[in-house]
Design a protein around this nucleic acid. Structure first.
Lengths: 198, 198
DNA sequence: GTCGTTATCTGGACAGTGTCAAGATAGGGG
DNA sequence: CCCCTATCTTGACACTGTCCAGATAACGAC
């Protein structure tokens, strides 16, 4: 019995996730339909429903996966050490992550899951964890440099918003293009660190 | 012949735009279907196609309209005067605009038009104009305060990205909620201005 | 006023979507 | 060995955007 013709796939859930991610990269969330996905995997249209409650559930799983990668990136890049260059390098990597996986990034932070669909508990958890992780690492890096009375949490939110905004504008091609990216991000970080070093 | 029963509507284009904006506010881009819109206006499903080439075209018109409002806001808020408070107040108003019209804001900057669909020439023009307008006003406000060698255009891009990122995170309910908003935005502006005043 | 011309509007049709319900299949534990 | 149940399939429904051919009426030329 060949691999492709057996009735029970055997590893459908993982295959679906993998192929869905592929399809996502190629065509974006809008081009990712369950029917196309099923056909691609070689299975009937409703088969995925035995592994994911919903299209929403599948997308949440996909986004959660991506958040894990981002979380790993945070852990990798935001270690102790000279803070200015660290932050600069982190932002560069963050932007690289976002621009190399624009559709995944869109899914992670876009309204598809957070506004229209319900973000799954798993997704909310891993997203929140990433942010907390970032906040902690950043606080460690900036320890002692923060002006008195400055809430590190606010700094984390404000800086994340900046980097996130850069990504969004860049990915969707509004106001910032790939050529500007490097300079703009450097400028942003420079401003940020200058304010703190004051 | 009553107003609602005549064959030729007479002012369909404007009515469509108005009602579409209403529908957009209520149900978001995803809930805005041409068929629902047509029914709501009391006209057949394909009637809108005589006034807009596409669904995309209608959405572009809607977004362009919203950009005009944003442009007006920029002109209104970013006048000469004490720069720190001016900027603070501008950001507050920008955030208000975005949070009071979240679906419009999403349409203006979202991938629906900029990635999936084609942004119309009109939309690109008005969006670009808004940014240029912002950049000019900001440069005027910060005149003489910028560290040497700083490109005002980069400052405009970086600061817009920050505010934009705040809006996105806030609207979609990620990492920043309504209670934090005020503080985070103040913090952001404070950092920004502190860096420039250095 | 009458008569095209043309803008506007209509209903039918098609391909595509997510998802529910009912039935088919087979793997795995008693 | 046999049944239970996880897994998979087909059929169906409502909804979407949009093309096409035909109906309607407003408007300008004569």
């Amino acid at each position: 019995m060949t691999n492709s013709a057996r009735y029970h796939h055997g590893d459908l859930r993982a295959t679906l996730l993998h192929e869905a991610n592929e399809l996502l990269s190629e065509q974006g969330v809008e081009g990712l339909s369950l029917r196309k996905l099923a056909e691609r995997v070689g299975v009937s249209r409703t088969a995925p429903y035995h592994h994911f409650k919903d299209k929403n559930a599948l997308l949440c799983a996909l986004a959660a996966q991506a958040f894990s990668e981002l979380d790993a990136l945070i852990g990798r890049q935001l270690q102790d050490g000279g803070s200015r260059l660290r932050v600069q390098e982190f932002v560069r990597e963050y932007l690289r992550f976002a621009t190399e996986n624009p559709e995944q990034y869109e899914l992670m932070f876009g309204r598809t899951l957070w506004k229209i669909g319900e973000p799954s508990e798993e997704l909310k958890a891993v997203a929140h964890r990433s942010f907390r992780h970032y906040a902690e690492r950043l606080a460690g890096l900036l320890e002692g440099r923060l002006p008195e009375g400055t809430d590190p949490r606010r700094i984390a939110q404000a800086s994340w918003a900046t980097v996130h905004g850069l990504c969004r504008l860049l990915i969707d091609g509004i106001y910032i293009n790939r050529d500007d990216m490097e300079e703009v991000s450097e400028q942003s970080v420079a401003l940020f660190m200058a304010a703190l070093a004051k």
